[in-house]
Protein backbone atom coordinates (compact mmCIF):
# COMPACT_ATOMS: atom_id res chain seq x y z
CA UNK A 1 0.00 0.00 0.00
CA UNK A 2 2.85 2.37 -0.64
CA UNK A 3 2.01 5.72 -2.09
CA UNK A 4 3.25 5.20 -5.64
CA UNK A 5 4.55 8.67 -6.40
CA UNK A 6 1.03 10.03 -6.37
CA UNK A 7 0.38 13.43 -4.88
CA UNK A 8 -2.73 12.28 -3.08
CA UNK A 9 -2.13 10.98 0.43
CA UNK A 10 -2.96 7.43 1.36
CA UNK A 11 -6.68 6.90 1.55
CA UNK A 12 -7.68 6.25 5.11
CA UNK A 13 -10.86 4.62 3.85
CA UNK A 14 -9.46 2.38 1.18
CA UNK A 15 -10.79 1.16 -2.12
CA UNK A 16 -12.37 -2.25 -2.34
CA UNK A 17 -15.09 -1.52 0.19
CA UNK A 18 -18.45 -3.01 -0.80
CA UNK A 19 -20.60 0.12 -0.82
CA UNK A 20 -22.93 0.52 -3.79
CA UNK A 21 -21.74 2.46 -6.80
CA UNK A 22 -22.32 6.15 -6.14
CA UNK A 23 -22.67 5.74 -2.36
CA UNK A 24 -23.15 9.04 -0.51
CA UNK A 25 -22.18 7.73 2.94
CA UNK A 26 -18.95 6.15 1.58
CA UNK A 27 -18.03 9.54 0.13
CA UNK A 28 -18.86 11.09 3.49
CA UNK A 29 -16.49 8.78 5.33
CA UNK A 30 -13.68 9.49 2.89
CA UNK A 31 -14.22 13.19 3.36
CA UNK A 32 -14.34 12.84 7.15
CA UNK A 33 -11.07 10.93 7.26
CA UNK A 34 -9.38 13.31 4.84
CA UNK A 35 -10.32 16.07 7.28
CA UNK A 36 -9.29 14.29 10.48
CA UNK A 37 -6.11 12.68 9.27
CA UNK A 38 -4.79 9.43 10.69
CA UNK A 39 -4.81 10.41 14.37
CA UNK A 40 -8.28 9.15 15.19
CA UNK A 41 -9.93 6.17 16.80
CA UNK A 42 -13.11 5.39 14.93
CA UNK A 43 -16.09 3.68 16.50
CA UNK A 44 -18.81 2.51 14.13
CA UNK A 45 -22.36 1.60 14.95
CA UNK A 46 -24.02 -1.14 12.95
CA UNK A 47 -25.16 0.14 9.60
CA UNK A 48 -24.31 0.27 5.92
CA UNK A 49 -20.87 1.74 6.39
CA UNK A 50 -19.91 -0.79 9.03
CA UNK A 51 -21.05 -3.71 6.90
CA UNK A 52 -19.49 -2.63 3.63
CA UNK A 53 -16.15 -1.73 5.20
CA UNK A 54 -15.52 -4.83 7.24
CA UNK A 55 -16.36 -7.95 5.34
CA UNK A 56 -14.38 -10.57 7.18
CA UNK A 57 -11.42 -10.96 7.00
CA UNK A 58 -10.91 -7.59 5.34
CA UNK A 59 -11.13 -4.02 6.51
CA UNK A 60 -11.34 -0.81 4.52
CA UNK A 61 -10.17 1.26 7.47
CA UNK A 62 -6.59 2.50 7.66
CA UNK A 63 -7.19 3.97 11.12
CA UNK A 64 -7.88 2.16 14.41
CA UNK A 65 -11.49 1.06 14.13
CA UNK A 66 -13.99 -0.81 16.25
CA UNK A 67 -17.53 -1.90 15.60
CA UNK A 68 -19.87 -2.85 18.37
CA UNK A 69 -23.64 -2.65 18.23
CA UNK A 70 -26.35 -0.43 16.88
CA UNK A 71 -27.21 1.06 20.23
CA UNK A 72 -23.92 1.49 22.03
CA UNK A 73 -21.37 3.14 19.76
CA UNK A 74 -21.41 6.22 21.99
CA UNK A 75 -20.90 4.08 25.09
CA UNK A 76 -18.00 2.18 23.51
CA UNK A 77 -16.45 5.48 22.42
CA UNK A 78 -16.86 6.82 25.96
CA UNK A 79 -14.93 3.83 27.28
CA UNK A 80 -12.12 4.32 24.77
CA UNK A 81 -11.88 8.02 25.57
CA UNK A 82 -11.65 7.37 29.32
CA UNK A 83 -9.15 4.56 28.81
CA UNK A 84 -6.93 6.84 26.74
CA UNK A 85 -7.12 9.44 29.49
CA UNK A 86 -6.24 6.95 32.22
CA UNK A 87 -3.33 5.62 30.19
CA UNK A 88 -2.16 9.17 29.52
CA UNK A 89 -2.54 8.59 25.79
CA UNK A 90 -5.15 11.22 24.95
CA UNK A 91 -2.67 12.82 22.54
CA UNK A 92 -2.63 9.65 20.43
CA UNK A 93 -5.77 10.73 18.71
CA UNK A 94 -9.35 11.86 18.95
CA UNK A 95 -12.18 9.40 19.43
CA UNK A 96 -14.67 9.74 16.61
CA UNK A 97 -17.98 7.93 16.26
CA UNK A 98 -19.31 7.39 12.76
CA UNK A 99 -22.86 6.09 12.76
CA UNK A 100 -25.91 6.19 10.54
CA UNK A 101 -29.13 7.98 11.32
CA UNK A 102 -30.83 4.82 12.62
CA UNK A 103 -27.99 4.13 15.02
CA UNK A 104 -28.05 7.76 16.09
CA UNK A 105 -31.53 9.24 16.26
CA UNK A 106 -33.36 6.00 17.11
CA UNK A 107 -31.45 3.10 18.56
CA UNK A 108 -28.34 4.85 19.85
CA UNK A 109 -30.14 7.77 21.47
CA UNK A 110 -29.74 6.92 25.14
CA UNK A 111 -26.05 6.07 24.87
CA UNK A 112 -25.44 9.30 22.97
CA UNK A 113 -27.35 11.30 25.55
CA UNK A 114 -25.19 9.75 28.26
CA UNK A 115 -22.03 10.49 26.35
CA UNK A 116 -23.01 14.16 25.93
CA UNK A 117 -24.09 14.41 29.55
CA UNK A 118 -20.81 13.02 30.88
CA UNK A 119 -18.90 15.44 28.72
CA UNK A 120 -16.58 13.01 26.97
CA UNK A 121 -14.08 14.45 24.53
CA UNK A 122 -15.62 12.70 21.53
CA UNK A 123 -16.72 13.86 18.11
CA UNK A 124 -19.93 12.05 17.19
CA UNK A 125 -20.68 12.09 13.47
CA UNK A 126 -23.97 10.91 12.04
CA UNK A 127 -24.16 10.28 8.29
CA UNK A 128 -27.79 10.86 7.56
CA UNK A 129 -29.22 8.87 4.67
CA UNK A 130 -32.69 9.21 6.13
CA UNK A 131 -33.68 5.54 6.66
CA UNK A 132 -32.36 2.08 7.55
CA UNK A 133 -30.68 1.47 4.21
CA UNK A 134 -28.55 -1.48 5.26
CA UNK A 135 -31.61 -3.65 5.68
CA UNK A 136 -33.43 -2.27 2.66
CA UNK A 137 -34.96 1.13 3.29
CA UNK A 138 -37.03 1.01 6.46
CA UNK A 139 -38.21 4.26 8.01
CA UNK A 140 -36.09 5.85 10.74
CA UNK A 141 -36.70 8.87 12.94
CA UNK A 142 -34.66 10.81 10.42
CA UNK A 143 -36.83 9.95 7.43
CA UNK A 144 -38.37 13.14 6.03
CA UNK A 145 -42.07 13.86 5.80
CA UNK A 146 -43.88 12.04 2.96
CA UNK A 147 -40.95 9.80 1.98
CA UNK A 148 -42.09 6.34 0.95
CA UNK A 149 -40.10 3.55 2.60
CA UNK A 150 -40.83 -0.15 3.01
CA UNK A 151 -42.29 0.51 6.46
CA UNK A 152 -44.01 3.77 5.54
CA UNK A 153 -45.16 2.91 2.03
CA UNK A 154 -47.17 5.36 -0.01
CA UNK A 155 -50.46 3.91 -1.14
CA UNK A 156 -54.15 4.61 -1.54
CA UNK A 157 -54.45 5.83 2.05
CA UNK A 158 -50.99 7.16 2.73
CA UNK A 159 -48.50 9.67 1.39
CA UNK A 160 -45.63 7.78 3.01
CA UNK A 161 -43.94 8.79 6.22
CA UNK A 162 -46.45 10.96 8.08
CA UNK A 163 -44.11 12.22 10.80
CA UNK A 164 -41.59 15.05 10.54
CA UNK A 165 -37.85 14.42 10.50
CA UNK A 166 -36.47 14.33 14.02
CA UNK A 167 -34.40 17.42 14.84
CA UNK A 168 -31.40 15.59 16.27
CA UNK A 169 -28.99 18.56 16.16
CA UNK A 170 -31.40 20.47 18.42
CA UNK A 171 -31.54 17.50 20.80
CA UNK A 172 -27.75 17.38 20.87
CA UNK A 173 -27.56 21.13 21.46
CA UNK A 174 -30.06 20.84 24.32
CA UNK A 175 -27.42 18.85 26.21
CA UNK A 176 -25.36 22.02 26.34
CA UNK A 177 -22.44 20.54 24.43
CA UNK A 178 -19.86 22.95 23.00
CA UNK A 179 -20.22 22.16 19.29
CA UNK A 180 -23.07 21.02 17.04
CA UNK A 181 -23.06 21.33 13.27
CA UNK A 182 -24.92 20.16 10.21
CA UNK A 183 -23.35 19.80 6.80
CA UNK A 184 -23.72 17.86 3.59
CA UNK A 185 -21.62 15.58 1.42
CA UNK A 186 -22.45 17.95 -1.43
CA UNK A 187 -20.29 20.64 0.19
CA UNK A 188 -16.87 19.05 0.81
CA UNK A 189 -15.18 22.26 1.96
CA UNK A 190 -17.87 23.00 4.52
CA UNK A 191 -17.75 19.37 5.64
CA UNK A 192 -13.97 19.48 6.08
CA UNK A 193 -14.08 22.69 8.12
CA UNK A 194 -16.81 21.40 10.40
CA UNK A 195 -15.20 18.02 10.97
CA UNK A 196 -11.94 19.75 11.87
CA UNK A 197 -13.77 22.06 14.28
CA UNK A 198 -15.59 19.06 15.73
CA UNK A 199 -12.40 17.19 16.52
CA UNK A 200 -10.53 20.22 17.82
CA UNK A 201 -13.24 21.20 20.30
CA UNK A 202 -12.62 20.11 23.89
CA UNK A 203 -15.63 18.05 24.93
CA UNK A 204 -18.49 16.43 23.06
CA UNK A 205 -19.27 17.52 19.53
CA UNK A 206 -22.12 16.40 17.29
CA UNK A 207 -22.15 16.54 13.52
CA UNK A 208 -24.92 15.48 11.19
CA UNK A 209 -23.96 15.03 7.55
CA UNK A 210 -26.64 14.70 4.90
CA UNK A 211 -25.61 11.80 2.65
CA UNK A 212 -27.95 10.69 -0.15
CA UNK A 213 -28.47 6.98 -0.80
CA UNK A 214 -29.19 6.40 -4.47
CA UNK A 215 -30.69 2.94 -3.94
CA UNK A 216 -33.05 3.84 -1.09
CA UNK A 217 -34.04 7.25 -2.36
CA UNK A 218 -34.30 6.05 -5.93
CA UNK A 219 -32.15 8.20 -8.18
CA UNK A 220 -29.36 7.63 -10.66
CA UNK A 221 -26.04 6.78 -9.01
CA UNK A 222 -24.32 9.67 -10.82
CA UNK A 223 -26.51 12.24 -9.07
CA UNK A 224 -25.51 11.70 -5.45
CA UNK A 225 -23.78 15.06 -5.11
CA UNK A 226 -26.35 16.89 -7.23
CA UNK A 227 -29.18 15.63 -4.98
CA UNK A 228 -27.21 16.53 -1.84
CA UNK A 229 -26.79 20.08 -3.11
CA UNK A 230 -30.45 20.34 -4.12
CA UNK A 231 -31.51 19.45 -0.57
CA UNK A 232 -29.61 22.52 0.62
CA UNK A 233 -30.62 24.77 -2.27
CA UNK A 234 -34.30 24.05 -1.72
CA UNK A 235 -34.02 24.71 2.01
CA UNK A 236 -34.93 21.17 3.03
CA UNK A 237 -31.52 20.56 4.58
CA UNK A 238 -30.19 23.46 6.63
CA UNK A 239 -26.49 23.91 7.24
CA UNK A 240 -25.45 25.67 10.42
CA UNK A 241 -23.40 25.47 13.58
CA UNK A 242 -24.47 25.71 17.21
CA UNK A 243 -21.45 26.89 19.18
CA UNK A 244 -21.87 26.92 22.95
CA UNK A 245 -25.62 26.95 22.49
CA UNK A 246 -25.71 29.77 19.96
CA UNK A 247 -26.93 29.20 16.41
CA UNK A 248 -24.34 30.65 14.09
CA UNK A 249 -22.59 30.42 10.70
CA UNK A 250 -25.76 29.50 8.89
CA UNK A 251 -25.49 28.90 5.20
CA UNK A 252 -27.75 31.46 3.62
CA UNK A 253 -29.85 30.21 0.74
CA UNK A 254 -30.31 33.43 -1.17
CA UNK A 255 -32.44 32.21 -4.06
CA UNK A 256 -34.01 29.00 -2.92
CA UNK A 257 -35.19 26.55 -5.55
CA UNK A 258 -38.71 25.09 -5.45
CA UNK A 259 -38.82 21.78 -3.54
CA UNK A 260 -40.23 20.01 -6.60
CA UNK A 261 -36.76 20.12 -8.13
CA UNK A 262 -35.49 17.99 -5.27
CA UNK A 263 -38.54 15.77 -4.85
CA UNK A 264 -39.21 14.88 -8.47
CA UNK A 265 -35.78 13.32 -8.94
CA UNK A 266 -36.39 10.70 -6.27
CA UNK A 267 -38.50 7.55 -6.38
CA UNK A 268 -39.32 7.86 -2.67
CA UNK A 269 -41.32 11.03 -3.45
CA UNK A 270 -42.64 9.94 -6.88
CA UNK A 271 -46.14 9.29 -5.48
CA UNK A 272 -46.54 12.98 -4.65
CA UNK A 273 -46.59 13.73 -8.37
CA UNK A 274 -49.09 10.99 -9.23
CA UNK A 275 -51.56 10.74 -6.36
CA UNK A 276 -54.59 12.98 -5.97
CA UNK A 277 -53.81 15.38 -3.15
CA UNK A 278 -50.10 15.18 -3.87
CA UNK A 279 -49.93 18.85 -4.75
CA UNK A 280 -51.19 19.85 -1.32
CA UNK A 281 -48.53 17.64 0.23
CA UNK A 282 -45.82 19.25 -1.87
CA UNK A 283 -47.11 22.61 -0.63
CA UNK A 284 -46.70 21.43 2.98
CA UNK A 285 -43.11 20.43 2.22
CA UNK A 286 -42.51 23.73 0.41
CA UNK A 287 -43.83 25.67 3.41
CA UNK A 288 -41.44 23.83 5.70
CA UNK A 289 -38.52 24.53 3.37
CA UNK A 290 -39.47 28.21 3.04
CA UNK A 291 -39.78 28.56 6.81
CA UNK A 292 -36.33 27.03 7.11
CA UNK A 293 -34.86 29.42 4.58
CA UNK A 294 -36.50 32.45 6.23
CA UNK A 295 -35.39 31.43 9.71
CA UNK A 296 -31.79 31.01 8.61
CA UNK A 297 -31.81 34.24 6.63
CA UNK A 298 -32.89 36.19 9.70
CA UNK A 299 -30.08 34.68 11.75
CA UNK A 300 -27.53 35.25 9.00
CA UNK A 301 -28.57 38.89 8.69
CA UNK A 302 -28.46 39.45 12.43
CA UNK A 303 -24.96 38.01 12.47
CA UNK A 304 -23.65 40.14 9.65
CA UNK A 305 -24.82 43.30 11.38
Amino acid sequence: MENRGETRPLDLFSSGHRACAGCGPALTIQAILRATGAKVFVVSATGCMEVVSSQYPQSAWNVPWIHSLFENSAAVASGIEVALKVLGRSDDGKVVVIAGDGGTVDIGMQAISGMFERGHDICYICYDNEAYMNTGNQRSGSTPYDASTTTSPAGAKSFGNDRPKKDMPAIAAAHGIPYVATTSVGYPKDLTTKVQKGISVDGPAYLQIHAPCNIGWGFDSAKTIEIARLAVETGLWAMYEIVDGKLTNVMKVSKSKPVEEYLKQQRRFAHLFKMPGGEAQIKIIQDKASANVDRLRVIAEEESR
Binding site: M1, P57, Q58, V63
Partner: peptide, 24 residues
Protein backbone atom coordinates in the same frame (compact mmCIF):
# COMPACT_ATOMS: atom_id res chain seq x y z
CA UNK B 1 -9.82 -12.77 0.09
CA UNK B 2 -6.60 -11.86 1.81
CA UNK B 3 -3.59 -10.16 0.23
CA UNK B 4 -0.72 -12.40 -0.88
CA UNK B 5 1.26 -13.87 1.96
CA UNK B 6 -1.30 -12.88 4.56
CA UNK B 7 -2.52 -15.58 6.89
CA UNK B 8 -6.16 -15.63 7.94
CA UNK B 9 -6.48 -15.78 11.69
CA UNK B 10 -9.96 -16.79 12.70
CA UNK B 11 -12.00 -13.97 14.16
CA UNK B 12 -9.33 -11.36 13.57
CA UNK B 13 -8.93 -8.75 10.90
CA UNK B 14 -5.20 -8.96 10.37
CA UNK B 15 -4.24 -5.67 8.84
CA UNK B 16 -5.91 -2.33 8.11
CA UNK B 17 -6.85 -1.36 4.60
CA UNK B 18 -7.03 -4.95 3.38
CA UNK B 19 -10.25 -4.36 1.49
CA UNK B 20 -7.95 -3.36 -1.36
CA UNK B 21 -7.65 -7.08 -2.10
CA UNK B 22 -11.23 -6.94 -3.36
CA UNK B 23 -11.23 -5.56 -6.87
CA UNK B 24 -14.62 -3.92 -7.15
Amino acid sequence: VQPEGEKIIKGVIGRPGTSEATKT
